[in-house]
Design a protein around this nucleic acid. Structure first.
Lengths: 113, 113
DNA sequence: GAGTATATATAATTTTCTTATGTATGTAGG
DNA sequence: CCTACATACATAAGAAAATTATATATACTC
């Protein structure tokens, strides 16, 4: 079950960027919950992975943030910049290509169209 | 084109083990060529990545080697041990699960059966 | 002699993740 | 009251895995 991690290495950013693209704005904890939900608990992002990664993307100009107080708790929302929007598209193309190649290499091609 | 790398991080071992499972025995350089061929040049494995990885798997008991001289050149062939055979199957299940989750997260599910 | 292909190896560095810890609020259970 | 869990962020230390660069060696082509 929860052992689908380990191969996550290069795709954390892509996943987070994609979720931000779909949801407009999200905060870190929300991202971890969304990923857990979508993958039915298979993939659990850790704080040690997501926060440094979000900070890095912010520093690179892919994301901007705004902080809100909700129920006495701080929430730091992340949003894509225009640069970020471009980056998601590139990362998604990369991911698509990569998954295709991986399926070829691992003999997992789901019947060619 | 050749930009499908970068996401390769956690799947190098799986790819090499799978190729060894299919081909019985292979040497390092041969693996790089096979991967380049199958992915039409998209994925180029580097020596700095494959040799340490092969050595590690040998040290872990997943692979054994035998060296041959072919046309005045040394070839070090790698083969799966029984432990290695088991490991390929596990890695492939992991990869399948991971790819499924990634497609879900990235909205790339190719129509549900 | 330079460049490419074949073939392996390793060292130095960087990237990225895991693990652990720390802060802080709120709720629920014993 | 103390513990545990959920929410919410952050960072430090260390491990793992890759990139980049270099080295060796043979053989062929320009």
């Amino acid at each position: 079950m929860g052992s689908s991690n380990g191969m996550l290495k290069g795709s954390l950013q892509t996943i987070m960027l994609k979720l931000l693209q779909e949801n407009g704005r999200m905060y870190g904890y929300e991202i971890t919950q969304k990923v857990k939900e979508i993958t039915k608990g298979d993939i659990k992002l850790t704080e040690g992975a997501i926060y440094p990664s979000l900070h890095k993307m912010e520093a690179e100009g892919l994301l901007i943030t705004h902080t809100e107080m909700v129920e006495n708790r701080v929430r730091k929302y992340y949003l894509l910049t225009e640069e970020g929007q471009v980056e998601v598209r590139n990362k998604l193309k990369e991911a698509e290509s990569f998954i295709g190649n991986l399926q070829l290499l691992l003999n997992m091609k789901p019947a060619i169209s």
